[in-house]
Lab assay of single mutants.
Amino acid sequence: VSVELPAPSSWKKLFYPNKVGSVKKTEVVFVAPTGEEISNRKQLEQYLKSHPGNPAIAEFDWTTSG
């Protein structure tokens, strides 16, 4: 189950709350306009370098507050 949070234009930000008793931590995933899922800052940096014209990296908020 995921919750969609505010994201930069043409992107989606999905929040996957951890299940009770789960060892997996809460996860935030950005979905690029191409449909590619980005789950960490390093991936995001690589994606933005190879896909010019996207929002600046500073516009991506990895917190769950939206």
Rank of each mutant, 00 (worst) to 15 (best):
E45Y: 13
G35C: 03
S39M: 12
N54D: 03
E27P: 12
T64M: 09
S22F: 09
L5A: 06
T64Y: 14
R41V: 13
S10T: 09
G53Y: 05
N40F: 05
S50N: 11
F15W: 15
S50V: 09
G53H: 06
Q43A: 10
K49N: 13
P17V: 15
R41G: 08
Q43R: 07
V3C: 14
G35Q: 02
K24Y: 12
E45G: 07
S2L: 09
E4R: 08
V31T: 04
K25C: 14
A56F: 06
K12T: 09
E36V: 07
A56C: 08
T26P: 14
F15N: 05
E45Q: 11
K12D: 03
A7C: 06
P17L: 14
Q43L: 07
K12M: 07
F60N: 01
V3W: 09
A58K: 09
T26H: 14
E37T: 14
T34D: 09
P55D: 03
V1K: 10
G53K: 06
E45L: 12
F15D: 02
P52F: 04
T34R: 02
Q43Y: 05
V20Y: 11
Q46L: 13
E45R: 13
K25W: 14
V23D: 15
V31Y: 07
W11P: 01
N18A: 12
G53T: 05
S9F: 12
P17G: 08
V1M: 12
K19N: 11
T64S: 10
E45I: 12
G21L: 07
K19F: 11
G53C: 06
H51R: 03
F15M: 09
E36H: 07
S22R: 08
Q43C: 07
Y47Q: 00
K24S: 14
V29C: 06
K25Q: 12
P8V: 04
K42S: 12
V31I: 15
A7W: 05
K19L: 14
N54V: 04
Y16N: 05
S65M: 11
S65V: 11
T34P: 01
E59Y: 06
W11G: 00
V31C: 07
P8A: 04
K42D: 13
T34W: 02
E4N: 08
L48K: 01
S10Y: 11
A56S: 13
P6T: 08
T64C: 09
V23C: 14
F15T: 07
S39W: 15
P55W: 11
K13I: 04
T26K: 10
G21E: 07
K42F: 14
S10A: 13
K49D: 11
Y16M: 08
P6Y: 07
K25P: 10
N40Y: 05
K49L: 14
K13P: 02
K13V: 04
L44F: 01
A32F: 02
F60M: 01
P6C: 09
T64G: 09
E27I: 15
V28W: 03
S10C: 15
F15H: 07
Q43I: 06
V1P: 14
V29S: 05
V20K: 10
K13A: 03
A56D: 15
E4S: 10
R41N: 09
S9E: 13
S39T: 14
K24H: 15
V28L: 07
Y16Q: 06
K42T: 11
P8K: 05
K13D: 02
A58E: 15
I38T: 00
A58F: 10
A58Y: 13
E59L: 08
L5E: 05
N54Q: 10
N18H: 12
P6D: 08
H51S: 03
K19T: 10
E45T: 09
E37K: 13
T64I: 14
V23M: 14
S10H: 14
E45S: 09
W11S: 01
T63F: 06
V31M: 07
K25N: 13
T63C: 09
S22G: 13
P52Y: 04
K13T: 03
N40T: 12
Y47L: 00
V29G: 02
T63G: 12
T63V: 06
G21A: 08
Q43K: 06
P6N: 07
S22A: 10
I38R: 00
L44Q: 01
I38S: 00
S2G: 12
T26G: 15
F15L: 11
V3P: 06
P52K: 06
S10F: 12
A7G: 07
K12S: 06
A56W: 05
D61C: 06
K24R: 13
E36N: 03
H51F: 06
I57W: 06
A58N: 14
N54C: 05
E27Q: 15
S2Q: 09
R41T: 10
L14G: 02
E59H: 06
K42G: 10
E45H: 09
K25S: 11
P6E: 08
P33I: 03
G21M: 07
S2A: 14
K49Y: 11
P52G: 05
W11T: 02
V20S: 10
N18D: 09
S65P: 15
A32M: 00
W62C: 03
G53A: 05
L14K: 07
G21N: 10
L44H: 00
N18G: 13
T63N: 10
G66I: 11
V29F: 07
A58Q: 13
E37Y: 15
K49G: 08
S50Q: 10
A56E: 11
I38H: 02
V20F: 13
G66T: 11
Q46F: 11
R41I: 13
G66S: 11
E37V: 15
P8F: 05
K49W: 10
T34C: 05
Q46R: 11
V31K: 05
P33S: 03
E37P: 08
L48Q: 00
N18V: 10
P55M: 04
K42R: 12
S39F: 15
A56G: 12
K13R: 05
I57K: 05
W62M: 02
E45M: 12
L48F: 03
H51N: 07
S65T: 13
K19Q: 13
E4A: 09
A7N: 04
S50E: 13
V31N: 02
F60G: 01
R41L: 13
Y16L: 07
Y16D: 02
E36Y: 04
V20T: 11
V29H: 06
E59K: 05
E45K: 11
L48M: 03
N40R: 04
N18Y: 14
S2N: 08
P52Q: 05
V31P: 00
S22Q: 10
K19W: 12
W62H: 01
F30A: 00
V20L: 12
P33E: 02
I57F: 13
A56Q: 10
S9D: 14
G66Y: 09
T64Q: 07
Y47M: 00
V20C: 13
K25E: 13
S39N: 10
F15P: 02
L48V: 03
D61T: 08
S39Y: 15
W62Y: 03
W62T: 02
I57E: 07
P33F: 03
G66R: 09
K24V: 13
I57H: 04
S65E: 11
E27A: 15
V28D: 00
E4V: 08
Q43M: 11
P52A: 06
S50W: 08
S10P: 15
D61Q: 07
P55R: 03
F30W: 08
T26V: 13
G35F: 03
T63E: 09
A7H: 04
N40M: 04
K42L: 12
P8S: 04
K13C: 06
Y47S: 00
W11M: 01
V29A: 06
V1H: 13
A7F: 06
V23A: 14
P33Y: 02
W62D: 01
F15R: 04
S65Q: 11
S39D: 08
W62A: 01
F30Y: 06
E59T: 06
G53Q: 05
K19P: 12
E37G: 05
T26I: 12
E45P: 00
S9N: 14
S22E: 11
I57V: 08
W62Q: 01
Y47C: 01
E4F: 09
E27Y: 15
A56L: 09
E27D: 10
E45W: 14
P8T: 04
L48G: 00
S50L: 11
K12F: 05
S50H: 09
V20H: 11
K24P: 15
V23E: 15
K25A: 12
N18Q: 11
S50G: 08
L44N: 00
A32T: 06
V28A: 04
H51Q: 03
L44I: 02
V29D: 00
T26R: 12
G66V: 11
K49C: 09
S9R: 14
S50C: 08
V31G: 01
V3L: 10
E4D: 08
E36R: 03
D61P: 02
Y47P: 00
V31S: 02
N54K: 03
F15V: 14
V3E: 07
T63K: 07
Y47N: 00
F60H: 01
T26Y: 15
P52T: 06
V3S: 07
P8G: 05
Q46A: 13
W62N: 02
T64E: 07
A58G: 12
N40H: 06
P55S: 04
A56M: 08
P52W: 04
K25L: 10
E37I: 15
F30K: 00
V28T: 05
E59A: 09
L44D: 00
N40C: 07
Y16W: 08
G66M: 11
G35L: 03
T34V: 00
Y47T: 00
E27V: 15
A32C: 02
F30R: 00
